[in-house]
């Protein structure tokens, strides 16, 4: 499975991206990812969980997550933000934020 993750916005308007190929990860981490994907009900989440443009919030991070199976048959993308993120997705986003931080600095 491939995971594409992007965090953007925030008070600085900077982004951070990462692509993870789970084939390159140790089995324990793959298991951890699978359990987060399952408990967040990722494939059942709507593809956009964002707020209306005029709800007044500002400077929150926006997130894009795409999961794609190795043969490309199963692909799902979810867009959300700090404010609209469903609780069950929080651990997965926290993991992806940490992963992206290990590999990339914030940039334009």
């Amino acid at each position: 499975m491939k995971i594409f993750f992007e965090q953007s916005g925030g008070i600085a308007g900077l982004s951070r991206k990462i692509t993870i190929d789970t084939n390159s990860l140790p089995p324990s981490e793959v298991q951890e990812i699978e359990s987060m994907v399952n408990s967040s009900n990722f494939y059942e989440l709507p593809s956009t969980i964002t707020q209306p443009k005029s709800n007044g919030a500002a400077d929150y991070f926006k997130y894009k997550i795409t999961l794609e199976s190795d043969n490309g048959s199963n692909k799902h993308k979810v867009q959300t933000s700090d404010i609209t993120m469903p609780s069950q997705l929080t651990p997965f986003i926290a993991y992806l934020r940490r992963k992206a931080k290990e590999h990339n600095r914030l940039s334009k």
């Binding site: 008070i11 600085a12 007044g56 400077d59 929150y60 700090d82 404010i83 914030l106």
Partner: peptide, 16 residues
């Protein structure tokens, strides 16, 4: 808010 979070925001009700 969150872990190692590089941000501050207004969520429509409060500062975070």
């Amino acid at each position: 808010f969150a872990r190692d979070y590089d941000n501050a925001y207004w969520n429509g009700r409060q500062m975070v």
